[in-house]
Nucleic acid binder design. Structure first.
Lengths: 273, 273
DNA sequence: AGGATTCCCGCAAAAACCCGCAAAAATTGC
DNA sequence: GCAATTTTTGCGGGTTTTTGCGGGAATCCT
């Protein structure tokens, strides 16, 4: 009889110890665990967490929300991300003529429609355009410019394709035969170029050999070519030729389309906005 | 009948922790016991404590409150946590385990020689390594990770090659068949991977299918494979397999190479530093 | 576009907390 | 030793926190 009771005691005692592990986690403890997982793996899924901790998804969601409110994590649909991993910033204060470029960016962003496949160069004007894109725009952007890609990446509904090759440190874009070959493989709806010089007779010109090769390929690989530039660069010439004005479909500056400076380009059949 | 046995069980169970059960515990004694439990398990539930000591929950709560006031424990809803608990999980401001990662980065940077061609993955550890590279190092780095490339670009004597393809927004690396094909084309001296899980039996594993494909290709395309990870990820497993430990040539953590945690990997023939 | 997730909101039950109080226990003073 | 005093404890009740669930909206993926 006593043996039987002692046996029962042992069973119960063991049961207590096992149950100890599945006892409800304290809220703080749970949140600490979640935070730990986020920091360790840079992301967590609420579904995984709720299976691991054995609580309802609502509880996880509430925890995530709390952690997000205090800035410990960034909540996203289905889980959360580590905040430290997501801050990739690229500062462009003190860019030359930034205000004008913002105007250009706004105009350029307005011509982009959902579903378009767009090839873009680099340059500060392009970066401003990337920032000006509406948040709900669904499009695909392809570029070899690292700062531009960083900006495109900020948009939730934009697919970004990075053109790979050797990285040019001063222009921060990928250059070389490989990049050109990749660009040749595609046919984009739009090619948006930030340009350094345009002139009715000499067309678009630039001063970096590698960049010119790339831009040439871009012009060839797109149905429509859009050029962005501040008015200051209109009617200027650089050493290396990219393409003639006849290959340009659209020109965007900070000036009004009926500005006399732009008349020659309108007359040449370019859509100026 | 059952009630009687259960009562006996409770008596015996309590007896396990407190020899002279018949006498009620003194306040000091009780608090010492609670503190002991907290330090032992990092947490206590008021409910279990009150069952163990056989006092009302109010008493436990008052004890906990007192201990909390003198800073011995941290009171939370439902129980208390050890103060060290918070240090471990919460005190990591900024990037998680950044100090450890800096140590790893330093070690990793030290194995790179002039003239090497190095393939690297992404991840915060890799970025730390990129920052730790000596300024006069002349080498070629190839990566699909945009933050990593940004760091490599800062170094005047480093050639950087960006692997192109679709950009994954959460991991900030290029993923896809194109990227894999490009990696396959080369044979690097070194492949440096920031890894998320390593285990003697399961090898290196991760949780993102696209990233795994990329890392697999990297392992295949390098003469030597170097893995970087904080010790915490040692002996953990993720769902998707990258490669076995037999394919790893070097393992770098923040711990000393003769740390017992690392012994199995040393025994497996991996160079651990 | 539609099917499947995930999210959000309100609710209700359970658990934990707080407060005041009075009994029990311990301490102190004589 | 004993009574007064202080401390401690348990308890009842009302409040707050936490958690899971259901249903409908929002969002994602294909």
């Amino acid at each position: 009889m006593f043996a039987a009771i002692y046996f029962l005691f042992l069973r119960l005692h063991a049961g207590f110890r096992n149950q100890n592990k599945s006892l409800p986690m304290l809220k703080k403890e749970r949140q600490a665990y979640i935070l730990h997982q986020v920091n360790l793996h840079n992301k967590v899924l609420s579904s995984t967490l709720c299976a691991e901790i054995n609580v309802s998804e609502d509880t996880i969601r509430r925890d995530l929300q709390e952690l997000a409110e205090s800035g410990k994590v960034i909540k996203v649909h289905g889980g959360a991300l580590s905040p430290s991993f997501n801050e990739v910033y690229y500062l462009t204060n003190g860019v030359y003529s930034q205000d004008q470029k913002k105007v250009i960016a706004q105009k350029a962003a307005s011509i982009i429609r959902d579903g378009m496949f767009i090839l873009t160069s680099g340059g500060t004007t392009i970066i401003e355009m990337a920032r000006a894109l509406p948040r709900q725009l669904r499009a695909t952007f392809m570029s070899g410019s690292i700062p531009a890609v960083l900006e495109y990446m900020q948009h939730p509904n934009i697919d970004v394709i990075m053109v790979g090759d050797r990285v040019s440190k001063n222009s921060k874009i990928t250059i070389g035969a490989e990049a050109i070959a990749r660009i040749r493989e595609i046919k984009a709806d739009l090619c948006i170029l930030g340009i350094n010089a345009i002139d009715i007779r000499n067309g678009i010109t630039d001063n970096d050999w590698d960049v010119v090769q790339l831009k040439k390929a871009m012009v060839e690989s797109a149905k429509k070519v859009v050029c962005l530039t501040i008015a200051e660069k209109i009617n200027t010439i650089q050493p290396i030729h990219i393409c003639g004005v006849n290959q340009v479909d659209m020109l965007i500056t900070e000036r009004s389309p009926d500005d006399p400076l732009l008349k020659p380009y309108v007359d040449a059949g370019i859509e100026v906005i």
